[in-house]
Structures are given as C-alpha cells and as structure tokens.
Nucleic acid binder design. Sequence first.
DNA 1: GATAACTCTATTATTTCTATAGGATTAATT
DNA 2: AATTAATCCTATAGAAATAATAGAGTTATC
Lengths: 136, 136
Amino acid sequence: MLSKKTKYGLKALTYLATQKGKEPVQIAEISRKENISQKFLESILLTLRKTGFLGSKKGKGGGYYLIKEPSEIPMTSVIRVLEGPIAMVPCVSLNFYEKCNDCPDEKSCAVHKLMLQVRDSALDVYRKTTLADLII
Amino acid sequence: MLSKKTKYGLKALTYLATQKGKEPVQIAEISRKENISQKFLESILLTLRKTGFLGSKKGKGGGYYLIKEPSEIPMTSVIRVLEGPIAMVPCVSLNFYEKCNDCPDEKSCAVHKLMLQVRDSALDVYRKTTLADLII
DNA sequence: GATAACTCTATTATTTCTATAGGATTAATT
DNA sequence: AATTAATCCTATAGAAATAATAGAGTTATC
C-alpha cells in the first residue's frame, strides 16, 4: 500500500507544478485544495524541501515552490524519498539493499526471483514518468 | 513492502511444488527447511488450504500438499489471497476497489494516474508467472 | 489407546503509519 | 519597533496493521 505521506506528497507536488509562476504557495492553500491535514502536510513539505525538491520562503507572503522544472523531476526519486524502496523486499532493492537473514541463497529463492521482476516493472514506470506527466 | 505472510506463503508453496509425489508434507518440515516460525506457518498454510491452493491430511503421516499443478497456479491469485490488493491504492484496484474520500475526481488525480500504470506493470508480471516458474 | 499431525480461536507483542501539539524562528508590513 | 503571517522543528500520542505465540481441540494411523 502507498502511504498517505507519499500520496499527499505527490498531490502537493502536482499542485505546485500547476502554479504558473514561482510564487510561494502557502501550506494552508495546498491543504485546503487537496484535502490534506495541514499539520501532516507541513512535515511532508519539510521533507521535500530538505531533499531538494522544494524551496521555501519564511514569513509573511512565504510558502513553498518547486526548485526544478516538473519535467526534471523523475518519479523514481520522489518515490524513494517519500515512500522508501521501490522494491517490495530489501534483497532486490537497488538503493536500500539488505540481505534476508532467513534466506541462505538469493539465487535459489523464489521470492527473490519474482520480486526482482516486479521491481523492474515498477522501475520502468517510475523512470519514464516525471512530475510533468502527472499534470492533467 | 511484502508482508512476511506472503513471503513465507510463497516459500512454502514453492517448497511443496518441488516435492515429487503428492505425499503430504508436514508443517514442521517446511518450517525447518525454510526457516519459518512453525506456528506462524501453520496459520498461513491454513489460509492456503481454505482458499483452494492446498489440501491437507490430518493425523499421523498427515501434512499439506498442492491440489493443482504448479503451472496452473498464477501469481495473481496467490498474491491476492496472501497479500491482498495488487494495486497500491484502492482506487485503482480491480478486485478490491474503493473510492478515495479525499479525492473528488479520479480522472484528474495525479496519484490515480501514476498508480494505474504501476498496477498494470505489476499485473503483467503476476499474470505471466505461475508457481512453476518460481522453481529454480 | 497412544501418538502425531492438522484445526481453530484468542491474545499479545511489535512495528509502522498517521496525526497532533506547541513552541521557535523568520520576514514583511505598518 | 510591534504586529502578523508564515515556515521550522522536535516530540509524542494514537491508531492500525503485522507478526508471532499459546493452548486446547480434532482426526487419523498404528
């Protein structure tokens, strides 16, 4: 299941991408328009700023804005920051690899074999999709 | 993330699929060979029996066995029984559809659009893979 | 009748996710 | 300088899902 964090983060990013200028947009506005708890959204936007997707301006008239062009923001990086690994098991993860402690040999593991294919298929989608592609 | 239930279930199914005959295999044996807590495995195998994947024989010399040929067991049905929906959000699920309450219109939802593609790509993999393909 | 196996329900433990609280900091406006 | 409007940050509570355990019950074989 996709976490609410990722879902809300994607919605917020898309909302910012639809804004014409680079004027800061307030959390309250995004929260209202996208039906997201403001406090929760606050922490998500903070994460997105710290990981280089968003810029922010403090004080009156402040808010958040996209740093890059939507077409320069691939889903692979958004998902990895918000959701974590794209793979469904750590032993097939490219960026979050971990060995299974219950499995003596990955090469002969059925779960490994299946999940490798599932990861690759998801990766295909995320790699070819940017934030620009999500705007409708 | 794939739940341990699904992971263990897949391993158990694969183990049974590698057994030559249709002789019942005891929980204890699968548990030992695949490093799975026996009690936890017990409940998983019970689920797989109730959903028509396994047969069981009680009493001495009893155990679990596959009812169908491994090549007749598609991953779509295994995953749906053990893990639940293949989709990452209910609003793009074929078998477990639910409307999002925070989203007024699916057609204009970025998350919906992206997750539809991810679901389809995973579905491709699961549909073309049977238990027989997991045996190495 | 003894033993070995599955069956079933209930419960606990653990983890993760979601959301909230509350104050600190910053910047624009008056 | 004071006020106001906004982000920043840490901590933590609450809820839900997952994982695992316990223990008694049932069935079949020998």
